[in-house]
Design a protein around this nucleic acid. Structure first.
Lengths: 244, 244
DNA sequence: GCAAAAGTGTTCACTTTACACCCATGC
DNA sequence: GCATGGGTGTAAAGTGAACACTTTTGC
């Protein structure tokens, strides 16, 4: 086996890899206007006891996406899920299990980007493992290069919000237009259209259907509850859209 | 060694991977208005004698991007190069070297997307290997899942053309505005602004500098030669831009 | 009644689109 | 001269940003 033990390593020999899948799972707490990311406490070396993105190593006969689904299912139960591949991080020595200067097994991480609904997502606490939603602003130093992966995922989220309907994968199934607006402001900051213009644009696009229901939250006029209408959106799928 | 030979395989055991890097290298022949992709003839099994994307397996101590650069350098000499990671294809049995129903070594492909200038790119013919620019419309059936990878890269190219200045990585260093316009029409089709409006928009953005030189191509008024001014573009880098 | 939140409308500046027209060259 | 491609200008339509205003609720 090349690159192992006492055997002399050939610099030109092919590297052997284990492939990991790491998920950046986002959610939004509409009540508190916070963007959340799911972190788990590591149970093994290396980085035992440190927070990390939920990840796993790919098994025999399992596709990358299968792997992503597997860890996800081990950590939370969800009805709705958006999942897409993010990026592949594969430099040598990104994992301390790789013997420092020699050429042992390499660890490569294919990262996935996931969106779930906070209210529907039930965390699976197995009694041992730590698992928690962290507000993006309060994420600690993570294991491996996971802070970098998270940052990459966060950038992707901000981009996708502007031109694709991913907001409706984190919002509850019915929502008010100010829920939607506040989601955009908490994730994107405040550098875009005011509420009135945002509202007018979204309604004109025609894929938000009024459920007829109203919800009253304290004082003020009750808000209409809307639902994302996937059928009405379908013809717009390939058109360049602007949600900002 | 798990998953090999007569040894019983554990379905839950970790898969062992070799990691390949495959490049989708685009270029444009401005003379003939054709989008080209670089293909190489395979010298080894599997798929011996079939066209494929230029690729290689990652070696000890080599990063993914290093690998991408290495094959690129083996096939062409270029001055200018744009390179970014595309996608990772890693399903089981995407490579016939994986023993069909058992669980041998897996082959995963991290694909990269590259843009080079046709005039400057000198193909390295080593006498044995076939290597050629193929017009995108005439690409044959490729080895592995390379047609799928190519399709993915092509989509990325079309997207990037609309909002980032990648056109200037495939155009010669100086070019006319109709060269630029024709590049857009050959890649994107004809569903966007006419020449006069395209021209006005691009010039207003302010990062095309007139070299003062003119070029005459047959009949008609000679065209001004422009150059992409990276410094003038820098402040726009993070702004949302529209080129179409 | 009054504050709070939702929802509507109007204005003005700017961009986009379509198209007509002028300019410089080869033959 | 005239065909050919390069380059400029303009009017009409549409869009986006800012902001004033109305509606419906709780207290």
């Amino acid at each position: 086996m090349p690159g192992r033990g006492t055997q002399k390593v050939n610099k030109k020999a092919l590297a052997d890899f284990k492939v990991g899948v790491d998920n950046v799972i986002f959610s939004v707490d509409t009540q508190q206007n916070r963007l959340l990311v799911l972190l788990v406490m590591r149970q093994d070396q290396p980085f035992l006891g440190q927070w990390s993105l939920p990840g796993t190593l790919v098994r025999n006969g399992e596709s990358l996406e299968d792997g992503a689904h597997r860890i996800l299912a081990e950590k939370i139960r969800v009805n709705n899920l958006y999942l897409e591949q993010l990026y592949t991080f594969g430099g040598p020595s990104r994992d301390p299990r790789e013997s420092p200067s020699s050429f042992g097994v390499r660890y490569l991480s294919v990262s996935y980007f996931a969106l779930v609904r906070f209210e529907e997502a039930e965390l699976i606490a197995d009694g041992v493992s730590g698992i928690a939603w962290y507000p993006i602003k309060q994420v600690p130093k993570l294991a491996f290069d996971h802070n970098e992966i998270l940052e990459y995922g966060y950038r992707r989220l901000r981009n996708k919000l502007e031109y694709s309907p991913v907001a409706f994968d984190v919002l509850p199934e019915v929502f008010t237009l100010s829920d939607l607006y506040q989601l955009y402001t908490t994730i994107l900051g405040e550098n875009f259209a005011d509420y009135s213009n945002f509202r007018a644009r979204l309604l004109k696009l025609g894929f938000l259907s009024d459920t007829g229901l109203k919800v009253s939250r304290g004082a003020g006029r009750p808000a209409s509850l809307y639902r994302f209408d996937a059928e009405a959106f379908a013809p717009l799928k390939d058109k360049p859209l602007v949600f900002i």
